[in-house]
Computed example of a mutant assay.
Amino acid sequence: MLGKVITFTGRFGFIATDAGNVYFRAADASTIERGDNVRYDTANGPDGRPRAVNVRAVDPAAVAEVDRVFGNSDDG
């Protein structure tokens, strides 16, 4: 999945996506900052709600090129 970090406190944050905002914990993220474009996987948190895991920054130009060559890379 792809999104953009809209909030990051250093302990947790939120990623804006087309489907709505997704919560993530700092432990589930590589070195990222507010405003970074990110790729992530989803998992259910202890409360049963989805959260982002394996959050990592991506270069939007590289994602666009992959989409152009191979089709949409954001299919889950």
Rank of each mutant, 00 (worst) to 15 (best):
G35H: 04
M1A: 13
F8W: 08
R68V: 02
G20K: 03
F8N: 10
G20W: 00
D18R: 15
D67N: 15
P50L: 09
D47R: 10
P60R: 06
A61T: 08
V63E: 10
D18Y: 06
A57N: 07
Y40C: 04
S30W: 00
R39P: 00
F14E: 03
E65T: 10
N54V: 01
V66Q: 12
S30I: 00
N72S: 13
V66C: 02
G71F: 09
R51T: 05
F24V: 08
P60M: 06
G45P: 06
R11C: 04
T31C: 01
T31K: 13
F24P: 01
P46C: 01
N72H: 13
V5I: 15
E65Q: 12
D28M: 04
N21R: 09
S73I: 09
R39V: 05
P50M: 11
A29F: 04
G13N: 11
D74H: 08
V53H: 12
D18K: 15
V66H: 10
G10P: 09
R25D: 12
V53L: 09
G10E: 09
D67T: 03
A27P: 00
D75I: 11
D28V: 08
Y23Q: 07
A43S: 14
T7L: 06
V66I: 15
F70N: 12
D18W: 02
T42V: 14
D36L: 00
G10D: 07
F14L: 07
D75L: 12
F24S: 01
S30G: 15
V38N: 08
R68I: 01
L2M: 05
R56T: 14
I32S: 02
G45H: 07
F24I: 06
N44D: 12
A61W: 00
A62N: 10
P50R: 05
V53P: 09
F70S: 06
D41Y: 06
R25N: 11
N21S: 11
T42W: 01
N21P: 00
Y23G: 00
R51H: 14
G48S: 08
D28P: 01
G71H: 07
R56V: 10
N54L: 06
F8Y: 15
D67Q: 11
P46S: 12
Y40D: 06
T9N: 14
T17D: 05
V53W: 10
R68A: 13
V69N: 02
G71E: 05
A19I: 04
G20M: 01
R34V: 12
M1I: 03
R49K: 15
G71I: 05
N72K: 14
D18T: 13
N21F: 00
T7S: 13
R49H: 07
P60W: 08
D18H: 12
R34I: 11
S73H: 06
P50F: 10
G45M: 10
N54C: 06
D18N: 14
R11L: 13
V22T: 07
E33F: 08
F14G: 01
D59F: 08
A62S: 11
